[in-house]
């Protein structure tokens, strides 16, 4: 695998257990910086579990434990010295079900910013505009920044969640099936956005939609039953998969 981009996230023999049940088996991979990496696979295959391990959202599940090494910038995220809050600010996350906070659009964007320190009003205004522009939402909402975010359409809400995530200036964006609840037009907008954002962020995308992975990602990993079957450049994986399981899956023979 040629590597013109440095590694941002790296896993070595990384496993996850939910109580006695093992959910991930010895995952080893390297996710390059400033690229879009997609994880595909049937539901329950472990792709979301792996994604949620990167910013330690699995910590929230009672009885979840990890094993092996998972590093971001060479630091093991499960190391005792890691401050989970800081880690999560460096790693933005966009969820499948986009729920804005039931606050105004403006407050949704500034929520993450004001958690740690006081930020001046003018700086907040600036960041709100910048984040909304990045999420390609500015023109649609600039006149109603102080209206409730619940009034936005589904696609707008998802882009607001992206804006909310980028507002804290992360380096990585984790996206957990961000388009599964959206109509085709909104999906198109979000995909376009993902392509634009990869210059600034390292993006990891979980999707059940193979076409989407083929369209927007540079690298793709295929998960099956908690194991990483294959990880390669997207074009390689889709045109000449090395493993039989991958071929079966992408040609639609199962899953």
């Amino acid at each position: 695998m040629a590597k013109e981009y440095p590694t941002k996230i790296s896993a070595r023999d990384f496993s996850v257990f939910y109580g006695p049940k093992q959910a991930l088996f010895d995952i080893s991979l390297q996710i390059p910086q400033n690229r879009v990496t997609a994880f595909i696979g049937p539901s329950g295959c472990g792709k979301s579990t792996f994604l949620r391990s990167i910013n330690r959202m699995n910590d929230l599940i009672d009885g979840a434990t990890g094993q092996g090494a998972l590093t971001v910038d060479g630091i093991d995220v499960y190391d005792k010295s890691v401050n989970v809050s800081v880690l999560r600010r460096k790693i933005g996350m966009v969820f499948q079900k986009s729920i804005p906070f039931p606050k105004s659009i403006y407050e949704n964007i500034t929520y993450g910013l004001t958690l740690l320190e006081k930020v001046s009003r003018s700086e907040l205004d600036h960041i709100v505009e910048q984040s909304l522009r990045r999420a390609a939402l500015w023109d649609e909402v600039k006149d109603r920044l102080h209206h409730s975010a619940m009034g936005l359409s589904g696609g707008q809400q998802q882009r607001l969640c992206i804006a909310r995530a980028v507002a804290v200036n992360p380096e990585i964006l984790l996206m957990d099936e961000p388009c599964s609840a959206l109509d085709p037009i909104s999906t198109g907008k979000v995909e376009e956005l993902i392509t634009e954002l990869k210059d600034t962020y390292t993006i990891v995308l979980v999707t059940h939609n193979m076409q989407q992975a083929a369209r927007v990602s540079d690298y793709t990993g295929f998960f099956l039953m908690g194991r990483l079957i294959e990880f390669d450049r997207t074009r390689t994986l889709f045109t000449s998969p090395a493993k039989k399981e991958t071929e079966d899956y992408i040609t639609g023979r199962f899953g």
Binding site: N55, M57, L60, R88, R89, I99
Partner: peptide, 18 residues
């Protein structure tokens, strides 16, 4: 209160108390 709201907040680096 939807679980997703808590997750969104925590994913933005908020502590549990926040």
């Amino acid at each position: 209160v939807p679980r997703e709201l808590r997750e969104a907040s925590l994913a933005l680096g908020a502590t549990r108390w926040q």
